[in-house]
Nucleic acid binder design. Structure first.
Lengths: 341, 341
DNA sequence: CGGTTCGCAGAAAGCCTTTTCGGCACTTTC
DNA sequence: GAAAGTGCCGAAAAGGCTTTCTGCGAACCG
């Protein structure tokens, strides 16, 4: 039913064909093409030429079967549409270098059953390792210690400290945000953030409060939790301005919230940044660049997170496993919403 | 260097192990597990039990080697960070159903060399087919007719009409946008869109103009091309309001542009939608829902596009190839920016 | 010049699974 | 009771590649 249409071209040229054309055995052909040492230069040249002529490309399946290494890894995500998976995935793809490693992508959509299923499927395809990307920073259940391949958790750490997890340092992010605001002369800082059930909002707030304390300052009002939306930003900012008209900076839990906050400020006749400085988290370019003025934000370095995860996975595959949680630092990207000009 | 650390568990249990435990030959074990007909029920049960006990999972590599079908496809994208690839990818993942098919993801980043490279790598891993996702709607070079597996182009069509391409009907999208505006009573409609070098902006404008003509209307002013940014939307809208204060609707080339337009309208004291209706294209939720009021937009149905591409690829793999360009229709998602309430 | 080493090529085994085919022990049929 | 048919199981080949091991001629040594 399948071979009805032989697609088009040269269906499968094998090492056998190459060997025959070069007038050697498959063993010799294999050695020649793989740079093994026991082949005369002249013979090797003949084989290489034959291979090129037939545009031979070795069957990785057969090779993997033998080598017990497939050069594939599984990338298991839970939020394909999200802000996090994609840059992480790019970083990972980048680090793997495409030459040697191919990436299986699976989206479990937050469903544990589906996740198990995918893991099974990946294992039966004999991936060399797994990267698991969560959709929230909160710890997630481990895939277990009994897996036959190494696993690295990215963004969302595993609950099992024996696993290796690479995460963003959200506390540090909160600190550095406040440090930046203080360094630009702000002293009456408020904090409007998102969904309180997210670890990210709690940790960022925690870091912000700690940094304020270090500077001998206090937060203006309480931390305002809500949702990760512009409309929450607008609403919260309006309330805040009513209660604390003297504030000179609003730190926002995300760029979206910050956009809403800036809208509200404008409507209240406050100017940014002269009157009130605003900054966000995530450095999501489509939000930061569209803002007026452009929005200062803390970049979470997701691509680097992906790259590091990939590197750690490589290391583990090569027999250098680690465990524990590795937190990557963030960086403040300064734009017009906190410094004039 | 590798087996230094045997990771953790039961490295590789093969069919042989199962057969031995069940006291049968591998041939029988295979038949038993695959539901082949020539096995006594009692024997089959014994094998199944043995397999479970060892938590055996067949080596897909070996299986593929034999079957000449791997159950894998390559997804070659050129804009991983973008708005298009991800939903398409989700749709494809969805259609493939995860049970039977695994997806190799590659990002060529717009580089033809890298793309060739990835194709080679995928072919050597013996994928059953390829989906190529472009980053713009403009036609792109074909991968060629000589590939040993079927290829489906998604979003960006192939230049070769013999290839099969699945694209969005941007002309139709433009038409249906105008139809919607007219149906809500608008007659003085302007159009602010993005980068003129994009096929998408040209086609949407073309469709909009055609629909206006059908309704016996004319565009207010010229089509305003610019960039796909909020700031362009703001700037263009300000100019437009100065020149044509009587307009009652602005069709925007993207949701981002629409956001800028709405900002400008507010600053000019115009209300949306009572005074001026605004709508965008793409239905990018983070923009449409944050707008005040929520933004009416034309949804490009990217997920469906991905699903259809996957289905067509399946069909082609099963020997039912098609060719030509298949344009999928779009749908208007109505929100507060065009209808009050 | 006999014996040892060395360089290079090929035969064959192995990786894991599926499938074809032969064979064995029965049961059925006249 | 012999011939034909049935039901189940296993041996073996196949799929494409790598690797080990054997073998053979040439070069080297004394």
């Amino acid at each position: 039913m399948n071979n009805a249409v032989p697609s088009s071209a040269s269906r499968k040229v094998t090492l056998n064909d190459v060997a025959r054309l070069a007038g050697v055995s498959v063993a010799t052909a294999s050695k020649a093409l793989n740079g093994r040492k026991q082949v005369r230069a002249e013979t090797r040249a003949r084989v290489v030429e034959a291979a090129e002529q037939l545009s031979f490309s070795p069957n990785e399946l057969a090779r993997s079967l033998l080598a017990d290494r497939t050069g594939t890894v599984g990338l298991l995500t839970n939020d394909l549409e999200g802000r996090f998976s994609i840059p992480i995935l790019m970083g990972a793809e980048d680090a793997f270098g495409a030459d040697s490693v191919a990436v299986f992508l699976c989206d479990a959509r937050g469903d544990a059953i589906r996740e198990k299923h995918h893991v099974q499927a990946l294992l039966s395809r004999r991936v060399d390792g797994l990267i698991v990307v969560g959709s929230r920073t909160d710890p997630r259940p481990s895939l277990g210690r009994e897996l036959p391949v190494p696993v690295v958790y990215a963004y969302a750490p595993s609950e099992d400290p024996e696993d290796l997890s690479i995460v963003v340092d959200n506390v540090g992010a909160g600190r550095s945000a406040v440090d930046h605001l203080v360094s630009t002369g702000r002293t009456r800082i408020a904090h409007i953030t998102g969904d309180p059930t997210y670890g990210a909002s709690q940790e960022r707030a925690e870091g912000a409060l700690a940094a304020l304390a270090d500077h001998g300052l206090e937060l203006v009002g309480e931390v305002r939790f809500g949702s990760w939306t512009e409309s929450w930003g607008r609403a919260a900012a309006s309330m805040l301005l009513g209660q604390h008209p003297g504030l000179d900076a609003i730190l926002c839990g995300s760029d979206q919230v910050a956009r809403g906050v800036m809208d509200a400020l404008r409507e209240h006749g406050r100017t940014v940044p002269d009157d009130v400085a605003v900054m966000g988290f995530d450095n999501w370019e489509i939000f930061t660049s569209g803002a007026r003025p452009a929005l200062t934000s803390v970049d979470m370095n997701f691509e680097r997170l992906g790259r590091v995860a990939a590197q750690r996975l490589f290391a583990a595959i090569d027999g250098e496993p680690r465990s524990g949680v590795e937190a990557l630092d963030t960086r403040v990207v300064i734009r017009g919403s906190t410094v004039p000009g």
